[in-house]
């Protein structure tokens, strides 16, 4: 007996196994980042001033004095754009246009790398100025939360690159399931995007 509902949705739930799985996984991811955001609120409420510490001889009055808002804004644009392209990639498969799919998926992966490059520029500027996570609670939570988010971006790149590369063989044998896989990968990618959309104002702006 084969496992049912891997390709076609179960009639009474209306979804495939993979889609139930990814939504449950994302629920647990929300709890993970929810825990970190709660920690952020908890630490900030207990801090006498925020980020407000003197580090390497400078006094910083607000988060935007320490962090680069323009770079983070650029990264926000990049991630949102990549969320759009991954939807277009899925839509191309739905219309049976594999070559268009490859372009959109390739763009998504390129933009993910772009995000990481901008992020690493941000990190290295901080390190050059002696701004390490051990300097203050603000920097500590900044590095941990954006670092964990970056790990999720890397995870997304690995999945998307697999689907575009060796995983693409499935398009020939089982196009429906392959399209489902792109949809599931897309759901994950939107989640990574949404986390950043919360991180950007929380850490950089307020």
């Amino acid at each position: 007996m084969e496992i049912p509902y891997t390709v076609h949705p179960r009639p009474d739930t209306g979804v495939t196994n993979a889609k139930v799985g990814i939504w449950l996984f994302l629920a647990s991811e929300i709890m993970l980042f929810g825990g970190l955001f709660s920690a952020y609120i908890f630490l900030r409420m207990g801090a006498p001033e925020w980020p407000g510490t003197t580090m390497s001889g400078h006094y910083y009055a607000s988060a935007s004095d320490i962090l680069s808002v323009p770079l983070a804004a650029l990264n926000t644009v990049i991630l949102i754009a990549s969320s759009v392209t991954i939807v277009l990639a899925w839509a191309s498969l739905m219309t049976n246009n594999f070559s268009k799919y490859r372009i959109y998926m390739g763009l998504t992966i390129l933009m993910s790398f772009g995000f990481l490059i901008v992020k690493s520029i941000e990190y290295s500027t901080k390190f050059e100025h002696g701004l390490f996570p051990s300097e203050s609670t603000f920097l500590a939570i900044y590095f941990v939360m954006t670092g964990l988010h970056a790990i999720h971006v890397i995870g997304g790149i690995v999945v998307n690159a697999y689907l575009l590369g060796p995983g693409a063989k499935m398009w020939k044998t089982n196009p429906t399931q392959y399209t489902n896989r792109i949809e599931v990968a897309g759901l994950y990618w939107h989640f990574v995007d949404i986390v950043w959309i919360f991180l950007f104002p929380t850490i950089y702006l307020i």
Partner: peptide, 25 residues
Amino acid sequence: LLLAFPPLEAAAVLQLADRLIDTSF
């Protein structure tokens, strides 16, 4: 398990940061 474990994972990340990269969470 699905919803309760991730916050501990978050806490473990923070404690590991405290121990390895000298943060003060």
